[in-house]
Nucleic acid binder design. Structure first.
Length: 249
DNA sequence: ACCTATGTTGATAC
DNA sequence: GGTATCAACATAGG
């Protein structure tokens, strides 16, 4: 679920529902999700503080605190942020903050691939996929021999594009996921960036990458929603990929 | 019951 | 350095 659009919604949820409330305690007992911290470390660092601002770059989020450390949050493959909800069963709330006012904020994740850490390191992250400028996009994406889709999903190249958004964007742009990234013309790269921004913005406003136009056809036997041709299905960049061989060259 | 598939990242190997 | 593969976690579905 969580690609850039979902993470942006999660960030907004923290901003709207989690700021300026005194932190009474933190449940950081999941040593996998909170690695490399020991249980109690995040708790003692955040207790008594308040969250003051929520930021995002790509799929990475971080929250500032008043005079305290920065809290990094990542949704992994199935995480989401909930505020003021009762604890989920089966310990699905892998990390949570209890506020002094009785409310709470939780990182809910069945699969435990999400992360909560203090002072997160985002130095290996490229510019945000929705913010990257034209020239930067050209030089960062338009190189190498890796398939275009793999390049788009490389978080150190640009941050935020996952499997579904990559397929949707390439389908919108009419570009094959298999094209060696370095072989794209500047015009193609500019067009790709334009479609990436459009697909991303649209997904944010509509609620997530699952609202894309290609999604409904993205299964075995699916047809291109535009031209009706059978979609091709292959593993590209390590992920299941669907595309229209008629329109995406 | 068993097998496959799943939005993520990171470590590892070539 | 760039690229590819597998493992980490846990669930859902055929």
């Amino acid at each position: 679920m969580p690609e850039l659009p979902e993470v942006e919604r999660a960030r907004a949820a923290i901003e709207q529902g989690g700021l300026h409330r005194e932190i009474a305690s933190v449940d950081d007992g999941d040593t996998w999700v909170c690695r490399p911290h020991s249980p109690g470390e995040i708790d003692s660092a955040l207790c008594g503080h308040r969250l003051t601002a929520a930021h995002r770059r790509g799929k990475a989020m971080w929250v500032e605190t008043d005079e305290g450390p920065i809290l990094g949050l990542h949704l992994g493959m199935a995480g989401r942020i909930v505020t003021d909800e009762k604890p989920a069963p089966n310990n699905w709330d892998r990390f949570s903050i209890d506020f002094a006012d009785g409310g709470r904020l939780a990182l809910r994740d069945k699969r435990r691939l999400s992360r909560a850490v203090l002072e997160p390191d985002h130095s290996a992250l490229g510019p945000d996929a929705a913010e990257v400028g034209r020239d930067s996009f050209r030089t960062r994406v338009g190189r190498g021999v890796a398939p275009l889709k793999a390049r788009l999903m490389d978080q150190s190249v640009i941050a935020g594009v996952g499997n579904l958004l990559a397929d949707e964007t390439l389908w919108r742009a009419g570009l094959s996921p298999l094209r060696p990234a370095g072989e794209l013309s500047e015009a193609e790269l500019d067009h790709l960036r334009r479609e990436l921004r459009a697909a991303t913005r649209r997904a944010i406003s509509r609620g997530g990458v699952h609202t894309g136009d290609l999604i409904s056809a993205r299964h075995r036997g699916g047809d291109c929603p535009r031209c009706g041709a059978a979609l091709d299905r292959r593993t590209v960049g390590g992920r299941t990929t669907y595309w229209c061989t008629e329109e995406q060259a």
